[in-house]
Design a protein around this nucleic acid. Structure first.
Length: 559
RNA sequence: UGGGGCGUCGUCAAAUGGUUAAGACACAGGGUUUUGGUCCCUGCAUUGGGGGUUCGAAUCCUCCCGCCCCAGCCA
C-alpha cells in the first residue's frame, strides 16, 4: 500500500480519534497505552496491538504508555517484563518515562473500592467459587442474588478491611460489584472486584493478599493515566458496559474503550497457551525457536522490525474475524531484505567441479556486486580457482526440458566468473554423481561474452579451497495446514519438515565476520542470518525465507 | 435456543446512497534480467440470501442464513 492509499483510507479507530480531535474531546489530546500482562512472551498478534496503540499516538502527536497489567501474581514474573520491553523496543517504539505497572495503583484501587462499598455499589460475598457459579445462572436463565448481597455498608467495610489484613483464607470471600444478577450480559451479574490471594507479587512482595480483578483494575488504570483511547481486542466488547459502569460509579476520568479484531495468521497459532505447549513438549526449541510466531522467534529467524511494521500496516484494522495469509508476511520480509541485504555466495548442497583447463594453483580475484538494488553497497573481490563447488541441484545428467542449468555438454555461466561447459561426469561405485569435469572459456572473465553468445543459465559457486564450512538451518512453516486449530488435533498438523539442518555447506570466507542476526542474501537461495548458536569455529545460519521460486512452481504445475 | 459482535475477490481490506465496487498479497500469463530473485505489463468479485424503500443500494428498512465471543475468585 502506498502512502497515498493510506491517506485516503483510514481505519475505524483512527476515524474515531480524528473525530475526537476535531471536536476537541479531551482538549484534542491523544494518549494510548499497551497493557500486556507479564505472563508470557509477545507474539506478532501483540505486535499488531501495540503498533495500533503506539502508532496512533505517534501519528496524532499524542503520547503512549507501556503498562504491565500485573494484577494476578499467580501467573506473572519479571522474566516476562524484561522480554516484553526488549521486544517492543526492537520494533522501534520508545515509551520514554511512561512505564507503569497496575500494581503501582493498588492503593488507589483499594480506596476506590471502599468508595464503591460506601455508596452501596459493592459488597462482600461469602459464597464459594462453586456457589457463585450456581448463583450466576446460565446464558438463558437469570442468576439469583447472593444471600450476602444486602450486608450493611459497615459490615462490608469491616469485612473488606479484614480481607486486606489477611484475616481470611484464599477463596473464602470476594468483593463484588452490586449490579444486576438478571442481566443478559454475564459480565454484569455482580462480577468479582477483589479476590483473596496469599501469593507474593513480583513487585509488591507480600504487601497485599487481595488483588483486583481485570475488569475493575483496567478501567481504573486507564483513568488514572488519563488514557483517551483504550484499544483492546474484540472479546472485551461485552466487558465495555462494566468498564463504563465502574468509571461512572466512581465519577472519574472516563477513557473510551475501542475493540478491534485480533490477528490470526495461516500456518501458525497465536494462542499463548498452545505455544507454551509446543515449548514444554519440546516440539520447538524454545520461545525463540525461529519457527515460532513470537517476536523473539521472528527476530532469531531474521525478520526485521521494518518488515513486521510494514506487515502490520498492510493488514489493516477492523472488527471482523480474519486470518491473514502468511504469504503476506513472507512478502514483507522479502521486500525489505531485497533492498537492504548484501549478497553472498554459498553452496548449500555441494557438488565438486574441476575446471580441467584452468591452471592448478592459480587463483584470481573476481569482482562481485554486493547488492544490485543498492549501488552504494559497492562491490567485493572473491577468489576463483580450479576446484569449485556448485549446488548439486544445478546439475542434471538428463535435464528436464525446461531446465536451464548445467548438464553434460551444456554451457552455463558461473556468476561473475566464467562460462563453463560440462565435459565429463565422474560417479562413485553406486552410480551417484561424485564430481564434474568442466572446461572454461578464458574469454568470458566476469561472465560476459565478447562474441555475444547467450547462455540460459547462471549458477552460483564457491572456491573449494577458500570457502568456509557452515551449518545451515532451513526453516519452513510450522504447520502443514492453514488453520491448525481447525483440526481437533492441531499437534498432528505440525510440519515435521519445518526444520532441515544442512551440515556440509560452504560459504565465501567474508561471511565469517557477519554479526549475529545481520541479514544477508545467499544468491539464488534466500535470506539468511547468523544464529546465536554460532561460535568462532562453527558458523550457523538460519534461513529467514527462501527467494520466490518460480522453478519450483514450474515443476509443481506440471504434476 | 439470552446478550454482544461480524459477514465485500482465494486472503486481508477500501467504499460513509450517486460514474466501469480502491489497493495489496496470492494466483495465472507475458516482457526485461549475469540471482528461474528484483523490476515492468496484463488478467482476476456486482458485495451471505430473499423481499422492500429510492431516479439510484455494498451502503437505508425487513425477514432469513452463517461465523465469532460471554456462564474464571484469568487477562
Amino acid at each position: 500500500m502506498t502512502s497515498a492509499d493510506k491517506e485516503n483510507s483510514i481505519d475505524f479507530i483512527r476515524e474515531i480519534v480524528e473525530r475526537d480531535i476535531r471536536e476537541g474531546k479531551h482538549g484534542g489530546r491523544v494518549h494510548t497505552r499497551f497493557p500486556p500482562e507479564p505472563n508470557g512472551y509477545l507474539h506478532i498478534g501483540h505486535a499488531k496491538a501495540f503498533c495500533i496503540d503506539f502508532g496512533i499516538a505517534e501519528e496524532y502527536g499524542g503520547l503512549y504508555n507501556l503498562r504491565f497489567d500485573d494484577t494476578n501474581p499467580v501467573k506473572e514474573d519479571v522474566e516476562y517484563v524484561e522480554s516484553i520491553m526488549r521486544d517492543i523496543k526492537w520494533l522501534g517504539f520508545d515509551w520514554e518515562d511512561r512505564l507503569y505497572y497496575a500494581s503501582d495503583y493498588f492503593d488507589k484501587m483499594y480506596n476506590y473500592a471502599e468508595q464503591l462499598i460506601e455508596k452501596g455499589a459493592a459488597y462482600i460475598c461469602d459464597l464459594s467459587a462453586d456457589e457463585v457459579r450456581e448463583y450466576r445462572g446460565t446464558l438463558t436463565e437469570p442468576g439469583r442474588n447472593s444471600p450476602w448481597r444486602n450486608r450493611s455498608v459497615e459490615d462490608n467495610l469491616d469485612l473488606f478491611r479484614r480481607m486486606k489484613a489477611c484475616e481470611f483464607p484464599d477463596g473464602t470471600r470476594t468483593l463484588r460489584a452490586k449490579i444486576d444478577m438478571a442481566s443478559p450480559n454475564m459480565n454484569m451479574r455482580d462480577p468479582a472486584i477483589y479476590r483473596i490471594l496469599k501469593k507474593s507479587h513480583h513487585r509488591t512482595g507480600n504487601r497485599w493478599c487481595i488483588y483486583p480483578m481485570y475488569d475493575y483494575a483496567h478501567c481504573l488504570e486507564d483513568s488514572i493515566e488519563g488514557i483517551t483511547h483504550s484499544c483492546c481486542s474484540i472479546e472485551f466488547e461485552d466487558h465495555r458496559p462494566l468498564y463504563d459502569w465502574f468509571l461512572d460509579q466512581l465519577d472519574i476520568f472516563h477513557p473510551q474503550q475501542i475493540e478491534f479484531a485480533r490477528l490470526n495468521l495461516t500456518y501458525t497459532i497465536m494462542s499463548k497457551r498452545k505455544l507454551a505447549m509446543l515449548v514444554e513438549n519440546g516440539l520447538v526449541s524454545g520461545w525463540d525457536d525461529p519457527r515460532m510466531p513470537t517476536l523473539s522467534g521472528l527476530r532469531r529467524r531474521g525478520y526485521t522490525p521494518e518488515a513486521i511494521r510494514d506487515f502490520i500496516g498492510r493488514i489493516g484494522v477492523a472488527k471482523r474475524d480474519s486470518t491473514v495469509d502468511m504469504a503476506l508476511l513472507e512478502y514483507c520480509i522479502r521486500d525489505n531484505l531485497n533492498r537492504k541485504a548484501p549478497r553472498f555466495m554459498a553452496v548449500l548442497d555441494p557438488l565438486k567441479i574441476i575446471i580441467e583447463n584452468y591452471p592448478p594453483g592459480k587463483c584470481e580475484e573476481l569482482e562481485f556486486i554486493n547488492n544490485p538494488e543498492d549501488e552504494s553497497a559497492g562491490s567485493r573481490m572473491v577468489q576463483f580457482s580450479r576446484e569449485l563447488y556448485i549446488e548439486r541441484d544445478d546439475f542434471q545428467e538428463e535435464p528436464h526440458r525446461k531446465f536451464k542449468r548445467l548438464a553434460p555438454g551444456r554451457e552455463v555461466r558461473l556468476r561473475y566468473a566464467y562460462l563453463i561447459t560440462c565435459v565429463d561426469v565422474v560417479k562413485d561405485e553406486n552410480g551417484n554423481v561424485k564430481e564434474l569435469i568442466c572446461t572454461y572459456d578464458p574469454e568470458t572473465r566476469g561472465g560476459s561474452t565478447p562474441d555475444g553468445r547467450k547462455v540460459k543459465g547462471t549458477i552460483h559457486w564457491v572456491s573449494s579451497e577458500h570457502a568456509v564450512p557452515a551449518e545451515v538451518r532451513l526453516y519452513d512453516r510450522l504447520f502443514t495446514v492453514e488453520i491448525p486449530l481447525a483440526s481437533d488435533n492441531f499437534i498432528g498438523t505440525i510440519n515435521d519438515k519445518s526444520l532441515k539442518v544442512l551440515n556440509h555447506c560452504r560459504i565465501e570466507p567474508s561471511a565469517t565476520d557477519l554479526v549475529i542476526g545481520e541479514p544477508v542474501q545467499i544468491e539464488r537461495k534466500g535470506y539468511f542470518c547468523k544464529d546465536p548458536d554460532s561460535t568462532e569455529k562453527r558458523l550457523i545460519f538460519n534461513r529467514t525465507i527462501s527467494l520466490r521460486d518460480t522453478w519450483k512452481k514450474i515443476l509443481k504445475n506440471q504434476k
